[in-house]
Design a protein around this nucleic acid. Structure first.
Lengths: 200, 200
DNA sequence: CACTTTGTGGAGCAGTTGGTCCAATATGGG
DNA sequence: CCCATATTGGACCAACTGCTCCACAAAGTG
């Protein structure tokens, strides 16, 4: 049942999509309320009534991202394929998503919240995105462990090392793509990464 | 010989060092002139007289970085060691430098200038840092080619792929360190990367 | 119907932004 | 010594920042 009071007149999904695209392209700090107002067509009052603050809007936009482009990393949890294939799907799929010309290049999660403001002013923003990266780290690690259990990797392989190797590569993709490195080159790089996914 | 006119009273190196540390920690956009004035002890007039603009100061700070911490990547050009050892020195050395607690964590070049402002307002800032990344790409590629020439890698190895693999990993290190991943874990990840540096 | 609750547009807030101006000051060259 | 050149601190600027307030409109509830 709808709550009492005047119903909101704007399309929530459309507003989140527009805000997400702006934050994705420019980052949190560089995106101004004036730009967000122009892109969403909303007034300051509507924006603050619905999201409390610029930071609140950003967090909601990140959630929106995770339900869309951000799902690309989810395949690493797919246990119906071999762990090696799951990593291959994760990396190749991430490149395809990030290079898609229908939206900003790179990954919102990889590129946002890497700077520190001393007054921890936007600490919530940094923490929100860092938590998503940590979640990816955990999922990749689980996949590496499955790889060992499946006998694809040596039993004494360094789990943290292999995990960090894959995740560091994944995080670097966004910067490379923004620098203009071709997606085909990065796909080839994934093949090189996967050479390591074997018994030594 | 010194140019006519009143000589500057401040220590240029010290000012560049202070500005570099601020930009390194916070990025270009998030660092305000007020912070730069406080950290350097200079007035707006002195700052603009010496560097023209905030962007000019940033570019000089990047040069200063390249002459200090930024030299860590130079070892990849060292032809007195094997190409494989050069890459190992590049990656291990970059981690050591970036994790050094005497300055901000991560790499200024890897973390800055990854966002795009539509009005290409700070395009010069982005371009300046992107050019340094491109230079690293070129140097890594040369090292990969030396590896093939030396017989360390297969003659038909994908040069661009191997280069992108190494550079993507290198770029991801900064974000991992800012997320709190231990340097020891990343050193272990380098060992995994180097497993690829061999004939298949 | 009145009454409450919530969303809306627009005006406007204090604070900060990057950057400029100016009078004073300090040097080298003629 | 005098002038041209350059640096200095501090006051100052328009523009913009994230955000709030207000009068009003649109819904549910009695």
């Amino acid at each position: 049942m709808s709550p009492a009071g005047r119903p909101r007149a704007f399309d929530m999904e459309g507003v989140l999509e527009a805000a997400m695209l702006l934050f994705w392209e420019q980052g949190y700090e560089a995106t101004s309320l004036a730009q967000l107002r122009a892109a969403t067509g909303l007034s300051s009052a509507s924006l603050y009534g619905a999201f409390d603050s610029k930071e609140g809007l950003f967090k909601r936009a990140v959630e929106h991202y995770m339900n869309g482009p951000g799902t690309a990393t989810g395949v690493v949890e797919d246990e119906t394929v071999s762990p090696r294939e799951a990593v291959a799907a994760l990396l190749h799929g991430s490149i395809d998503m990030q290079a898609d010309p229908s939206h900003p290049v790179g990954c919102l999660i990889a590129l946002s919240g890497t700077m520190r403001a001393p007054g921890e002013e936007h600490e919530g923003v940094r923490a929100a995105v860092a938590a998503r990266r940590e979640a990816d780290r955990v999922r990749i690690r689980a996949c590496v462990e499955r790889g060992i259990a499946a006998g694809e990797l040596d039993a004494d392989a360094d789990v943290d090392g292999v995990t960090a190797m894959i995740h560091s590569f994944l995080l670097g993709l966004s910067t490379q793509l923004r620098d203009g490195v071709a997606a085909t080159t990065l796909h080839a790089a994934v093949d090189v990464v996967l050479l390591n996914w074997r018994r030594s």
